[in-house]
Nucleic acid binder design. Sequence first.
DNA 1: CTAGGGTTAG
Length: 680
Amino acid sequence: MGIFTNPSSPSFTRALHIKDRFLQSFDSLKQLKHVHSQLIRIGLDQENYLLNLLLRSSFDFKDTHYTRLVFHQTHEPNVFLWNTMVRGLVSIDCFKDAIASYASMRREGFSPTGFTFPFVLKACARLLDFRLGLKLHSQVVKLGFSCDVFVNTSLVSLYAKCGYIEDALKVFDDIPNKNVVSCTAIITGLIGVGKCREAIDMFRKLLEMDLVPDSFTLVRVLSACAVIGDLKNAETGMSRNVFVTTSLVDFHAKCGNMERARLLFDEMGEKDIVSWSTMIQGYASNGLPKQALELFHNMLDHGLKPDCYAMVGALSACARLGALELGEWASSLMNIDEFSINPVLGTALIDMYAKCGSMTKAYDVFKGIRAKDRVVWNAEISGLAMNGHIPAAFAVFGQMQKYGIPPDGNTFVGLLCGCTHAGLVNEGRQYFNIMVRILSLAPTIEHYGCMVDLLSRAGLLDEAHQLIKSMPMEANAVVWGSLLGGCRLHRDTQLAEHVLKKLVELEPWNAGNYVQLSNIYSASHKWDDAENVRSLMGERGMTKLRGCSWIEVCGIVHEFLVGDTSHPLSEGIYSKLSELDKDLRAAGYVPTTEYVLFDIEDEEKEHFLGCHSEKLAVAFGLISTGPAEVIRVVKNLRVCGDCHEAIKLISKITGREIIVRDTNRFHCFSGGTCSCKDYW
DNA sequence: CTAGGGTTAG
């Protein structure tokens, strides 16, 4: 910029004529503003050509205030300035502003050019404003741009994004000189609506036209084929930009290969908010919530503001961990206007609050979502059911019908779960009938699972067993597991033996099944069978299942394993436990090994009952939170029967409210009883 | 103004 040090010299004016170089290469807004003031000083601030370049550069800094200042400074803006304005606004994702700018341009009497349309059309596509898109299409025709490959490519994308794939195909077919870009638009559109076969055919046509596909198209097509091996080969010679690599990261995440995804992510030179969100979401949906949150923090450290996608990823991670404080903190980062919250983000929030046992807040979010789609309703219903608010769940279902939202299979999964947790056998049968007979929805294995669960818990073990046999599909481990739960609750070891044999077949990797089966054999003195199961476990290299519980205190998630002594406050925790033990025994509590038969944690001695992970987490909660705070614990397995009895009494002795979420449901302990009414 | 398409979510 040395050339500008003496602006009065004639070299300054000359320099401005090679301005493209300068005006496009500003590192800071300050530099740009400096040049702007120089222009004003020498009276060149009314040259539209120069202002246009200045305007274009100003968008690099996303300062719309300054951008408008530049624009409004011109006394007579020309069509190029208007175009630059529209394009710039689109480039910084201000789609509504871009459309407003386009409207002003039209009001001022300017005709759009071939350069204008692609950008306004993109704004429409991103806002899914199909009506305006149609209007623009007719203008395109009227003004004679219907052969323009650029304009039509944008139209293809608009139609595809708004879900009108047939129209997109029609426009695409009429493009006389198709190129890679227009082919990409239609291929992406086809994949977007799940027409992978057609997308692949289109890709073949592209090759037949002797067009060279870019890496991005290759990634999309290969993802559509899910040809992992091929992709690996293709990856090596691929040119990488942020779009391509982010797609690759997403692809590997979707295949469950998080190591590969992370490797690509770390190697990326430029990461944008989408790359971060994709990676966070990848962790969250692959059951790695801690990593998801770690990366979320990492992103904030890089000075990036989370967008909706990153938020959804973080929230679903919090939901899984039961980390209410973290979830609330995350959502506070984003200025969520309760009335404009989008349904996807809303659902994630409802889910997070529901899984953290905070249904009042979930309901507030639910009320605030204007555009409630079916998923939102379903999330609210299953949230209520999961938290034991069964009448409320039924009421919301009634509302849903009143609003004319047709329920789907998931709605009934929520309702049936509610029936199960409340032991409402007749209501459950009714809902199942409504679904099948009246709404003609085909029950999935999940629905059968709920019904089996419902019947088993109510002690109707034969009926449940019959239902399994009559199912049109093969029963899976979840269904058999439900029946096993009933056997446990009603102490039917004979049926349990049969069920466990099935389960060992179905999930040979699940150590819990072997442990329970061998426990049952031992209890019925079938020592040989017990020994066989044990040695089978050894042969298959089974490792013990370790129970694991989490508790969040002051925004930090603490993890406990069975008999864990690794926590810094371990001593305090154990002395609290022995103190509690005395109080418990004084209150008439006798540790029971009765449950050990069905225990999936491979620990048989009374000693270990004292230090199951959930008890450790509760004890830690007691010594590290204030007396009025609710203690929330999450366990990765079913809560152990003995611990359940103990925690009931702990809640009575200490007067604290304790909420334990296990794999199945919430247990809200208060005053010596549990919300599950010992029914789980 | 020499463009246009394309990546993430409940």
